[in-house]
Nucleic acid binder design. Sequence first.
DNA 1: CGCCCAGTTGAGGACACTCAATAGCGGTGG
DNA 2: CCACCGCTATTGAGTGTCCTCAACTGGGCG
Lengths: 236, 236
Amino acid sequence: MKPISLQAIWLSETKCRSCAVRNSALFSGLEEADFRHIHPPIKDLALVPPDALYRMSQRGSTLFTLRGGVMKLVQYLPDGSQRIVRLLRDGDALGLEALVGQPYQQDAIALTDCEICAIPVEVIEQLGREQPRLYRELMTRWQQALSDADAWLTEFTTGTARQRVARLLLRLACPEQDSHLPLFGREDIGAMVGLTTETVSRTIAELRRQGLLRDRGANVQECNREMLRRIADGEE
Amino acid sequence: MKPISLQAIWLSETKCRSCAVRNSALFSGLEEADFRHIHPPIKDLALVPPDALYRMSQRGSTLFTLRGGVMKLVQYLPDGSQRIVRLLRDGDALGLEALVGQPYQQDAIALTDCEICAIPVEVIEQLGREQPRLYRELMTRWQQALSDADAWLTEFTTGTARQRVARLLLRLACPEQDSHLPLFGREDIGAMVGLTTETVSRTIAELRRQGLLRDRGANVQECNREMLRRIADGEE
DNA sequence: CGCCCAGTTGAGGACACTCAATAGCGGTGG
DNA sequence: CCACCGCTATTGAGTGTCCTCAACTGGGCG
């Protein structure tokens, strides 16, 4: 397992005011003037797949915004097996626990190439004093994470293998909108839905055979959303 | 299923300044003076077992502090089965989502007699303007909930029935300290650990037969923590 | 070309689910 | 006071799903 690639840290050329995800990100809604004080310490990171942004029980004084890419939050069990407790995507916040002085609760690992914005806790605290509105924004992030966690639990730990995989496909690979994600590895899928890689493989193969799914390598080409929905809801 | 028992609402005799859980509760750390403005609208509720404090997708403008008792947060699946995503105990906060304008995400249902403090969102917002320290307190609550949710997922959705039940017992009925909880119904236990009531019953019966557990009705009398720990970690 | 890793497929067995019958408990009413 | 009802917990038998272990395939890269 690779250590955190500190080499990947870049001082950002573009400041937050021109950030790609500015509108959906933490500082959306703040005025131009509010940024005057925070030139210096905000940094950009770039991660490549199995890089870790941070590891469980590390103490940090930085929180992060994911500007692009997908990351997983992983917890480990005493027997060594891993469980993915959440996925993070564009605009999501990571490492909020640093804000209340707690160590990070999981390993945060890149599943795709990632662009990340690292924000020191002091910046938030300083900004928060002048702009209480920021707190509302932060609380929204937290609520978002909590909602995700709860949904994750009910969707991916209940029902048959078939149901769980169908739900995962609907959520990741064939969502309503665009933003299709690759299917990652079977191992990761297994850690998301609580099944072995073999069972995941068999289940996906079955869906393919039934023509509900067509994929080329890791990328899903096409899928029958109605059918998958019916399977996910246990109607067959 | 009973509706919310609005009759249960009492105007609090005792104000927050003398609240039983003041130190562990939301307003801990606030000065006496800060309470001057909030006499009027904080209310006390009393719930009795299958009462609901609120229901999923209701819109509310109140958040709650659980002063005593145990509540469950329940989500439902399309097939009608239920899943308990978290338990709340003395000092925990409920309904934080109201603070960011979202509807409640689950049903909150009393498992024991409960004493609850209901705080209108405006009170928080007003208080927060004068006392930014309150926001730190709120964020800590959120982080607490998130940690609980993640721990819940890894502990109660992985491993054999035996392991899950052992973990539940360690957490609820035989914790390190006192604060032993009753074992609730088999149905609820099942909804917590993702097993059927029959499997839960069999598993507990087995533990009893092996002398790791002695109970009278719903109350656990005695249990072998070391052994349960070993089972929980999958060492046998 | 051949190695290595990820994915697929197969066979067998364990574990938890389903359905069903029984036991225990508390409350109600005769 | 006891008989009966209803609900919950327990136990049993049989089945199905998923896990385990193992072999095989295919693509990427040195």
